[in-house]
Every structure is written in structure tokens, then in C-alpha cells.
Amino acid sequence: MNLLKSVMGLIKPAKVIFRILFKKPMTLKFPSESLEPVKDYRGRHFLNLEKCVGCGMCSRVCPNNAIEMVKFNGKTYPQIHLGKCCFCGLCVERCPTKALTMTPEAMLSFYDKSLAIYGPSKLSQTAEK
């Protein structure tokens, strides 16, 4: 009786797994396909150069000291080190003119660490598609 019970207990999971074989696979065929990014995902920042007034609020609130104010085109703008950033979005929340926003862009890998420093000109580019 006991033996029968354990054999039955083993057959059932095997059956379940066998059934999965005929289902549509869960796996995403990355890199040829990827999930559609969520609209409000907190990814790379985007800076609107016209709107930014250079007040530096974003750099003061950042918990990771990722934002530095730099000179660019004769004005001060934030420069974000994406390698320090934790993508929390506090800087965006705090920005008084809504110049800083976040884009869903997340594919940010680099061969070199210094490429992760995004100056105002890089920040003001829209995501390449």
C-alpha cells in the first residue's frame, strides 16, 4: 500500500511535467525579442536643456551623490553618473521645472566605466531605436 502510494506520488509530478512539454514556452527569445518596456519604468534620465534652470535641486536630493553640476554651453546643467545612480527617481520628483524625466531605456552596459558618465549633451538625446 505504502509502495503504491509513493509510486503514485512520483507519477503525478512526472505527468504534470510531461503536460508542460506541449504548452507554449515561457521563455523569451532574448536578444531577438524582448518584453515591451513598461511605460513608467525608471530607466535612463532625459534632460530637457531648454527647461532646466540649473538650480541644482536634483543634485542635492540624490542619495548617491550621482549628480554633479557642470558647465555646458555657458550654463550649469546636471551630469549624471549612471554607475552611481540607483534609479530611484528622487531627482525627477524634486525637479521644479520638470526638466529631468526618466525614460524606459535600460540597456546600459559598458566596456569602460567612464562611459557611464552621462553629461548634459548625452542626457538630452532621446533613446536611439
Binding site: 532574448f30 549612471l82 535600460a106 546600459l108 552596459s109 559598458f110 566596456y111 557611464a116
Partner: peptide, 20 residues
Amino acid sequence: DVWVTGCPPKPENIGHGLVM
């Protein structure tokens, strides 16, 4: 060799790093 940014990086980004 490869730096992947994010906190934590999205799986897509990790894949991107691996492909790189």
C-alpha cells in the same frame, strides 16, 4: 570586462551585458 549598470540591472540589461 563588462560593466552593467542598474540597481539591480534589468534582466534585459544583464543579457545585453552577456551578449557584449
